[in-house]
Design a binder for these strands. Sequence first.
DNA 1: GATGAAAATGGATCATA
DNA 2: TATGATCCATTTTCATC
Lengths: 146, 146
Amino acid sequence: MLDDIDRKLLGILSANARISLKELAAEAGLSSPSTAERLRKLDERGVITGYTVDVDPRMLGYTLQAIVRVRPLPGQLHIIERMIQEMPHCVECDKVTGDDCFVARILVRNMEELDGLLDGIAERAQTSTSLVKSTSVKRRLPALLP
Amino acid sequence: MLDDIDRKLLGILSANARISLKELAAEAGLSSPSTAERLRKLDERGVITGYTVDVDPRMLGYTLQAIVRVRPLPGQLHIIERMIQEMPHCVECDKVTGDDCFVARILVRNMEELDGLLDGIAERAQTSTSLVKSTSVKRRLPALLP
DNA sequence: GATGAAAATGGATCATA
DNA sequence: TATGATCCATTTTCATC
């Protein structure tokens, strides 16, 4: 699927996606054109889905982070999903198996704001909220299998 | 804190962090040197913490994604945290308030692999696992406050 | 597929507003 | 603090292996 060089490229990019092609090529032990071609193919194959910037939420004024499990009341699932998607405070949400249909990551400025958000869906869903105290594992790539 | 141009730069970068400085400047309506200087400062201030590549886990052979809540048994918290951190299948983990101490996102190739991982910590922690059926909100930036 | 050289493009610096 | 001009570095293309 991926060869050693592809894995190396992904590893380097995951640490710094804005590295120049030249440096990337040098670190991977390849020429720039070959490196560019490999990136193009990883993109084309859908292995690489994008390049993004990581931002410190606190520096944007978001001092509180919460993981909220959402259990929509009967008949409310689709409305709730749409409400979550349109909530700019939600930065990540998965639909999962089990009683809790959704697990969402929410950023807020303070408790009042969190309270307000949860109140906004309280009529249509039950929620269980855990506040994030610290991050044990910062988002990273999984092991790149051979 | 951030002005309109900074917010614009972050927005553009979150959609494509490998855009050239020149294009970035053009899209933001700024000169390249000013754009470079602003990026440098966003970095320096800790607003931007890095640039990463997004990868489709399925393209790496990880067909199953799970959100696992982990409740360590008394006295096992630190060992469990270390075990999670050293687990290459864990791509994200937060320490949270409440009975469940950790919420981890796990990638595996199949059910057997997930079962094996959970077995590996079963002596030291209780776990509640939800399988991810779909992604309602792909990781994104929150609203950039004025 | 990968490479090396040439053409095209982009980035960093500096003087200036 | 932003800009435009300059020079230097990088990226892309293409012919070749």
